[in-house]
Every structure is written in structure tokens, then in C-alpha cells.
């Protein structure tokens, strides 16, 4: 079974040379640490920066330079700043190649729920609805099951949706799964995890064709 870093490492393999990438809060943020260093990638933050670098050294933080999680950041050579309107032009206009975000639930039709639990405090969707409605390529990073052990890969989402039919791929602590018109297609298993275990943890239709390879991390 993978931990959060394992999930981030596997997703990092999906990041290709020349990609502009938007990373969500949580596991997605970790992906930046594991992208191959022989390719050129730029990270976009929806609050108005392209070419985000690592966190600053102590004493070098700047209140005017943060990411979407409100954390202090740095920029890399070639970076640019822009306003929120232009930022979402990059997103809605499909200039960002890959969006990686977390989710509470994903359905076998690619619907995603990640912003609201009825009856609990609702903080808002931030930029998630714009991102999922627009991105050509969306990868979800999440645990396969919730804290109660219930599947997060469902036939239909039970929580209020963030977007419909938008998720392309899911990387969990157990598996890599592609969303196809027929349902969740199992592509890879996490090291030491059986197909049976993945089947058991998946409520939606799981398509298993031939031998399922183990992930190479």
C-alpha cells in the first residue's frame, strides 16, 4: 500500500516535458517534489503565478508571494505574475495541460465531489469547479477508501458534485485507475496489493483485463 508520498511519486510520472501543471492542496502539492529533473515543467498557481518554485528559506519569505494554499513560495527564472482573471483564462481556456487534485468521491462516470459535506461547515469550492470543468486532463490523488473504510470510487457520487464527467485518471494508495465509458479500468496495482483487494475496495464497476502490473516507483 502506498503512503501519500508514494501516490505523489506515481502521479509525478504522469507529468510530461513541456507541461503547464496546476496542483491542488494536499497530496497534489507533493507531486512537484518528484517530477523528473530532466524535463521542463511549469507549475501554475490560480492566485496568479506561473513558474512557482520551492518554499523560501527562513527570513526570505515575502507576504506578496504566496500559492493558492496561502503558503509563502518562491519563483523560478522565467516566472510570471498575473491577475485572477488571466489565471482563470489559462485554466478555462485549456492552456494548462494537467490538473492534479484531491477528492472525497469519484464516480465511474468521472464525476467528482470534493467541496461540500452537507451538515458540516462549508468552506467553498475555491477554484476547483473552474479547474474540473475546463481541464482536458484531470488526475485525482486520493485514498481508495475513507476513514470508515468505505470506498471513494463509486457508481454515483453521494456528496454534492464539483464537476461532471471530468476525471480521467485516479491514483490511490491501492491502484492506478482510468475512467472509461464502461467504468473504472484497473491499470496498475500498488506494490503488494492484490487485484482482489482493489476489487473489494471499489464500489463502482471495476474492469480488469489480463494481468495487472505492479506500479514501478
Amino acid at each position: 500500500m502506498l503512503d501519500k508520498i508514494g501516490i505523489a511519486k506515481r502521479i509525478a510520472q504522469e507529468v510530461k516535458d513541456g507541461y503547464y501543471v496546476n496542483l491542488g492542496i494536499g497530496i497534489p502539492t507533493l507531486v512537484a517534489n518528484y517530477v523528473r529533473d530532466d524535463i521542463e515543467v511549469e507549475f501554475q498557481s490560480e492566485n496568479g503565478v506561473l513558474g512557482m518554485g520551492p518554499f523560501p528559506f527562513e527570513g526570505e519569505e515575502d507576504a506578496d508571494l504566496i500559492n493558492a494554499g496561502k503558503q509563502t513560495i518562491t519563483t523560478l527564472p522565467g516566472a510570471s505574475f498575473f491577475d485572477s482573471s488571466m489565471s482563470f483564462s489559462m485554466i478555462r481556456g485549456q492552456h494548462v495541460h494537467l490538473t492534479i487534485l484531491g477528492a472525497m468521491e469519484v464516480s465511474e462516470e468521472g464525476d467528482i465531489a470534493n467541496w461540500k459535506i452537507p451538515g458540516k461547515m462549508v468552506k467553498g469550492m475555491g477554484g476547483a469547479m473552474d479547474l474540473v470543468a475546463s481541464a482536458e486532463n484531470i488526475i485525482v490523488a486520493m485514498m481508495h477508501t475513507n476513514k470508515a473504510g468505505e470506498s471513494k470510487l463509486l457508481k454515483k457520487c453521494s456528496l454534492p458534485l464539483t464537476g461532471v464527467g471530468c476525471v480521467k485518471k485516479i491514483v490511490t494508495n491501492l491502484a492506478v485507475i482510468e475512467i472509461t465509458p464502461e467504468g473504472f479500468k484497473l491499470l496498475e496495482r500498488a506494490p503488494g496489493i492484490s487485484v482482489e483487494a482493489i476489487k473489494k475496495a471499489t464500489e463502482g464497476t471495476l474492469i480488469i483485463e489480463g494481468d495487472i502490473p505492479e506500479m514501478i516507483l
Binding site: 520551492p54 523560501p56 528559506f57 519569505e61 507576504a63 503558503q71
Partner: peptide, 11 residues
């Protein structure tokens, strides 16, 4: 100009 999430790397 308060910082909400001061996130730094030790030198």
C-alpha cells in the same frame, strides 16, 4: 501585510 501560512525551508 500579514502572512497566513508562513512556510519556509531552514537554511
Amino acid at each position: 501585510k500579514r502572512i497566513e501560512q508562513r512556510t519556509v525551508i531552514k537554511k
